[in-house]
Computed example of a mutant assay.
Amino acid sequence: MVKLSKSARREERLGYLFISPWILGFLAFAAFPILASLALSFMHWDIYASPSWIGLDNFNRLFRDPLFYKSMKVTLTYSAMAIPLGLVIGLLLSLMLNLKVKGINFFRTLFYLPSVLTGVAVSMLWLWIFNADYGLLNYMLSWVGIEGPQWLKDPSWILTSYVIMSLWGVGGNAILFLGGLQNIPEQLYEAAKIDGAGMYRRFWRITIPLLTPTLFFLLLMGIIGSFQVFTQAYIINGRGGGGPDNAGLFYMLYLYQKAFKSFDMGYASAMAWIGGLLSLVLALIVYATQNRWVYYEADETQGRKAVVK
């Protein structure tokens, strides 16, 4: 073991001192609750009485619960619709925000602002927009002679409504894509132009491959975020309901119902671990495939590849 000098030991102690607030916060507000929920997942606890050990009963009940599968289906369906759509629209928006035109910084700020607004305020806004009787969306559809659907009152439209709502924060994706676009060296495009590559070929052979690190990050965050949908579902479904035919019963919303309406904390803890493990598995699958489609290096040969010989 290498013996540290007095100044090095002092620097080490200062380092631990500076990160101690984070360490204490993690232990108190993350590590302890995580371990406590793991223990509670093997217990029955209704808050009023002391927890009692029941082994795997919570998990056995969970896998026989039709609403567990319903909430999982709702969440996965929402993820399959909202994540790709958010990525595509975010990319298209970033291409427009990357244009060198006067006042572009104003539009970048304008498109990013909605993503920093609070979830409750945004949910109330969308509740009005999707109102079937006097909502803005159906009113605008009536201008072109279209009778709008019931949206949040119709089981066949409620998930579509949530997907549309998710686009409210697409400006955050666009700003991250914009950062990726501005990190692509201009000489790659110049090399491709010299070799005769058109605009679309440069886009597919240079822009898309070199944006894959950003795409990879946003895909991971999207998977994790889709399993945390709660606020908008809670507000729009009427403070914790699942909507018509439970078509809006997201996984976190059902977990909330079990924990704070039924006071079945052991069951809710088991749900939390199953949901967390599933999102982890999906994230690991994406992570394991990154070597096949994520490119981290850029050089002039990437520009040369823009031309099909």
Score class of each variant (00 low, 15 high):
1 M>E: 07
3 K>L: 15
4 L>Y: 15
9 R>N: 13
23 I>F: 09
23 I>Y: 04
23 I>P: 02
24 L>I: 13
25 G>H: 14
29 F>N: 03
32 F>W: 10
36 A>Q: 13
39 A>Q: 09
40 L>P: 05
42 F>P: 01
43 M>K: 14
46 D>E: 13
47 I>K: 11
49 A>S: 05
51 P>I: 14
51 P>Q: 13
51 P>G: 11
60 N>P: 00
60 N>F: 10
61 R>S: 11
62 L>W: 11
67 L>C: 08
69 Y>F: 14
70 K>W: 08
71 S>R: 02
71 S>T: 01
72 M>F: 10
74 V>T: 14
76 L>T: 01
77 T>Q: 11
81 M>K: 10
81 M>G: 05
85 L>N: 14
86 G>T: 02
87 L>Q: 15
88 V>C: 08
88 V>D: 06
90 G>F: 04
92 L>V: 13
92 L>F: 14
93 L>D: 12
95 L>Y: 00
96 M>L: 15
97 L>K: 09
97 L>Q: 03
99 L>H: 02
99 L>C: 09
113 L>D: 11
114 P>H: 06
117 L>C: 12
117 L>I: 14
119 G>W: 05
120 V>S: 05
130 F>S: 08
131 N>Y: 07
137 L>H: 03
140 M>D: 08
143 W>K: 13
143 W>M: 11
145 G>I: 14
146 I>V: 15
148 G>L: 15
152 L>E: 04
164 I>M: 04
165 M>Y: 13
167 L>S: 04
169 G>R: 03
171 G>Y: 08
172 G>N: 08
173 N>T: 07
175 I>F: 00
175 I>S: 02
176 L>P: 06
176 L>N: 05
177 F>H: 02
177 F>C: 01
182 Q>V: 03
183 N>M: 05
183 N>T: 05
186 E>T: 13
187 Q>E: 15
187 Q>M: 08
188 L>H: 01
188 L>F: 07
189 Y>D: 12
198 G>M: 10
198 G>C: 10
199 M>L: 11
200 Y>K: 01
208 I>H: 00
210 L>D: 04
213 P>D: 03
214 T>E: 00
215 L>S: 03
215 L>C: 02
216 F>A: 07
216 F>I: 09
217 F>M: 12
217 F>H: 08
218 L>R: 01
219 L>D: 02
220 L>G: 04
221 M>K: 06
222 G>C: 04
222 G>Q: 04
224 I>V: 12
236 I>C: 02
238 G>N: 10
238 G>H: 12
241 G>W: 03
241 G>F: 02
248 G>M: 07
249 L>F: 10
250 F>R: 03
250 F>C: 03
251 Y>K: 03
251 Y>Q: 06
253 L>W: 07
253 L>P: 07
255 L>C: 10
258 K>D: 04
258 K>N: 13
259 A>N: 13
265 M>R: 07
266 G>N: 00
267 Y>F: 10
271 M>T: 09
273 W>C: 06
274 I>M: 08
274 I>N: 00
274 I>Q: 02
276 G>R: 07
277 L>F: 12
277 L>C: 08
280 L>E: 01
283 A>F: 15
284 L>Y: 11
285 I>S: 06
289 T>H: 09
294 V>N: 06
295 Y>E: 06
299 D>S: 12
304 R>K: 15
